[in-house]
Amino acid sequence: MPKATYIETEGKVHELDLPLGATFMEGAVQNDVKGIVAECGGSCMCATCHIYVDDAFLELLPEMEEEEEEMLEGATAERTPNSRLGCQVRISKALDGIILRVPGEQ
């Protein structure tokens, strides 16, 4: 299983093995990573699964659909070039070792 490292706002680190195909949101919620709220359960409707992807992996991610783009515009925490919605990106072999940071607010 590919690994993903989540870093919570207060610094707590979760090094997790995620099942192939799981979204970053699911990986966070099912492992009790604090700060990923995911109110809509992965429907791209709430923007409370906002996550910052480490620079090294940004290029490897699939491109954003228009709706993810728009939802991020309205996210509570600052939107940066590293911003993605956790429910719209799935873990793959290519993303093994990815580092994800949780924003301060959702």
Binding site: C44, M45, A47, E67, E70, M71, E73, G74, A75
Partner: peptide
Amino acid sequence: LNRPADHLN
């Protein structure tokens, strides 16, 4: 409808 940015605003 398919306007997520409007919704969040």
